[in-house]
Design a binder for these strands. Structure first.
Lengths: 340, 340
DNA sequence: GGCTGGCACTCGTCGTCAGCGAGTGCCAGT
DNA sequence: ACTGGCACTCGCTGACGACGAGTGCCAGCC
């Protein structure tokens, strides 16, 4: 494709202006607002080429141009540098996050911060259980036939389940169970626990086998299936900002619906990596209901490990460099906080 | 005020038709759809009176009538019976709730159910800590100078906090602490705990005083201040249903914003009572941003006690009898479930 | 060959205007 | 006290023309 430097420059100008004004941009306005060094006629020729190549399009025959998803993609990949955040912004992020008292608080603050800074809908995934390891298991007798099973992970997550036992158990027995569980499981990654847990019931004393067996089944459930992933969401009201353009079409419904479906949102973080942000623009989204939006996501965690994902959902018409920078910065700070 | 039976009947008909069609209702359409036994001219006269009294109004000089907030109020208070739910609906509610495995799950299911049945935005408050009592306290050593404090309430809520101790403590000491805490606090209502907790630090052994003191301050925080109230929200996408009428005005933003502010939502449950549902129509809302909506709320809890609130937020133009019935029914079922 | 100025053309937007019709208020009659 | 009838209001719709932003293309210039 024959896109020389000036044509790329024109595309960049179109994207920037459109993002800023939310209105189709014409050749004349372009030469006025950017020092392209050529006349509007030349720009028009360039635009014709860009349109032919599918990077921009005209909403109406005689209107200005608007970037296509493909145009945004090119812009993100080759025409923009990630904006470094201002020291003031960095300080704001830090100040906002340091007060957090526990994991819940960190996640909540992070998601609100992200929504506020990007003025978009923010999503933060709680540290994934599968990627954490067991720090401690606790058994709390609630009544003679009931135990509370508490699991603490190294990412600070605490999961608890009430276990109905087949019969009454002694305090001593519980102490022994607790000891065994911890000896077997502490330090083990959650994904690796199932076989170990299975082994426990086989090696249990005959008289404690029934108890151990119920305990183990609940444990497995907690470890692997239930509540596996949790999410925090904020900034939904920013959707209303998407512009009366899209509001009238009723395109809002499906987006709100998608945002309520945890399962759908979790897909966004399927293959997040730390550091690099992933950008999905419009049609590139696997989630059909989000085809009208762009998603910027990244992983976070202490050091280079990834324990969860976070990101934002907004109109394709968004400030990519700024948003990417913000998402990455918040992710890095949250990662640091998890390292205590 | 001289509102005879027929005028009230006319008001009821207007409310019902407007709720159903979402369009201003005229005198002619009214006599056609309802067997009022009089002509449209008579209805017009009645309407004139109703308008003078402030129960209905005309959006435009030559359009049909629309109920005012005051009109809805009269309708709710005197013109409608609560619709009993169909057995099918009852069964649906029950089936949806019985599968719940823990408190989190109950609340989540309840809020989704409510949103689905009413097709509105649903809010459920977690059982309030202040109204619960302590079932058990557990101390879990995480390292030599760190404890995890877990509190279980009789409503099934589990709160946990990590406590940084001033110095290392022995296992025996922890066992003793646990014993003391439980002996003092189990069965006590959370609101009544602070004085008891204060007493603990005074009566502590000299060498354990520092430990007890940090523990107590965290405990107080957990008991009284932090995370005091939590909420679950669902059905936000139903807001988009409020009709293109309101969408265009941009009235959506403030509502979405209000829904994100937990503090604001909690106000809705300030004085909920079990059994009776409270209805706030339009202007009656203390929360300014919700003046364009109506709120139906009620309390729930085992038996006649109230441990939390739930409700829905929707357009003033809503099916009040149906919504009230649904909210009350879900609240009753959830209350039953909490009684185990 | 690439850039430019100029020009004809397209087409969406805006304001005006007339016709339609739903709905009203009022009045005279039963 | 209710009803039928009638004149009136006024928002909605569609047609129409003026306007103007923006385009594509072409001939000419460097």
């Amino acid at each position: 494709m024959g896109l020389d430097d000036r044509k790329l420059e024109v595309l960049r100008a179109i994207v920037e202006d459109y993002v800023a004004t939310q209105e189709p941009v014409g050749s004349k306005a372009l030469v006025e607002r950017h020092a392209l060094g050529v006349s509007s006629a030349t720009v028009r020729n360039d635009m014709a080429v860009l349109e032919e190549e599918g990077y921009i399009r005209q909403p109406h025959t005689s209107a200005g141009r608007v970037p296509t998803d493909r145009g945004y993609r090119l812009f993100v990949d080759r025409l923009s540098r990630v904006k470094p955040l201002s020291p003031a912004e960095r300080r704001a992020i830090e100040r906002f996050l340091v007060g957090a008292v526990d994991l819940d608080d960190v996640v909540h603050r992070a998601v609100r911060l992200l929504a506020q800074l990007t003025r978009q809908v923010a999503v933060v995934q709680y540290p994934s259980l599968t990627r954490s390891s067991v720090r401690h298991l606790e058994l709390v007798p609630v009544s003679t036939t009931r135990l509370l099973l508490v699991m603490i992970t190294d990412t600070g997550r605490v999961e608890q389940r009430v276990v109905e036992l087949p019969g009454p158990v002694e305090i001593d027995e519980i102490t022994e169970l607790r000891r065994t569980l911890n000896a077997t499981l502490v330090g083990v990654k959650l994904v690796d626990t199932p076989p170990l847990v299975q082994g426990l019931v086989e090696r249990a004393e005959p008289q404690g086998k029934a108890t151990m067996s119920t305990l183990v089944s609940v444990l497995l459930e907690t470890l692997v299936e239930r509540h596996e992933e949790r999410l925090a969401l904020a900034g939904t009201s920013n959707l209303a900002r998407m512009g009366p353009l899209d509001l009238t079409t009723g395109a809002l419904r499906p987006i709100l619906e998608a945002l309520e479906e945890e399962v759908i949102l979790l897909k966004l973080f399927d293959e997040v990596k730390s550091g690099a942000a992933r950008v999905r623009i419009g049609d590139e989204n696997e989630v059909v209901d989000l085809r009208a939006t762009s998603v910027v996501s990244t992983g976070y965690g202490p050091g280079a490990t990834v324990v969860g994902g976070m990101g934002i959902v907004g109109p394709t018409r968004m400030d990519y460099p700024g948003t990417i920078a913000t998402v990455r910065a918040v992710a890095r700070y949250v990662g640091e906080m998890l390292g205590h």
